[in-house]
Amino acid sequence: MSLFDDDQPRKKTTHEIGSDLSLLSVDELTARIALLTEEIARLEEERARKSASRSAAENLFR
């Protein structure tokens, strides 16, 4: 183990849908759940923003 391992950029945790989970530790699974939960919140916020924009446009053209 090198003394400089901490200097190396860490690979960002990603998750591929349908990937094999059997080799992951409990901590890795917890990290992936947190990552996916954050992504779901981001997607829901964007959906709400687009829905509001669409509703405003529909009301303008009525």
Rank of each mutant, 00 (worst) to 15 (best):
S2H: 14
L3I: 06
L3Y: 12
L3Q: 07
F4K: 09
F4R: 12
F4D: 08
F4Q: 10
D6G: 06
D7V: 08
D7F: 15
P9D: 02
P9V: 03
P9R: 00
P9I: 01
R10S: 10
R10N: 05
K11T: 12
K12Y: 00
K12T: 13
T13A: 07
T13H: 00
T14F: 01
T14P: 00
T14K: 04
T14L: 02
H15N: 03
H15S: 03
E16T: 15
G18D: 01
G18I: 02
D20T: 00
L21C: 02
S22R: 11
S22G: 11
S22A: 10
S22H: 05
L23T: 13
L24Y: 14
S25Y: 02
S25N: 02
S25A: 03
V26Q: 11
V26G: 00
D27S: 13
E28A: 06
E28I: 04
L29S: 02
T30Q: 14
T30N: 14
A31Q: 13
A31V: 05
R32I: 14
R32C: 02
R32W: 01
R32Y: 05
I33T: 07
A34W: 02
A34H: 07
A34I: 06
T37N: 12
T37H: 14
E38K: 13
E39G: 03
E39P: 01
I40G: 01
I40F: 07
A41Q: 12
L43K: 09
L43P: 01
L43S: 06
L43I: 11
L43E: 11
E44G: 00
E44S: 04
E44F: 03
E45C: 04
E45L: 08
E46S: 09
E46C: 01
R47D: 04
A48R: 12
R49S: 05
R49F: 07
K50V: 09
S51H: 12
S51K: 15
S51W: 09
S51C: 10
A52D: 08
A52F: 03
A52M: 07
A52C: 02
S53A: 15
S53E: 15
R54P: 00
R54M: 08
R54F: 10
A56F: 13
A56Y: 12
A56I: 04
E58V: 06
E58C: 07
N59D: 15
N59A: 15
N59C: 06
N59L: 14
N59R: 15
L60F: 08
L60Y: 09
R62W: 04
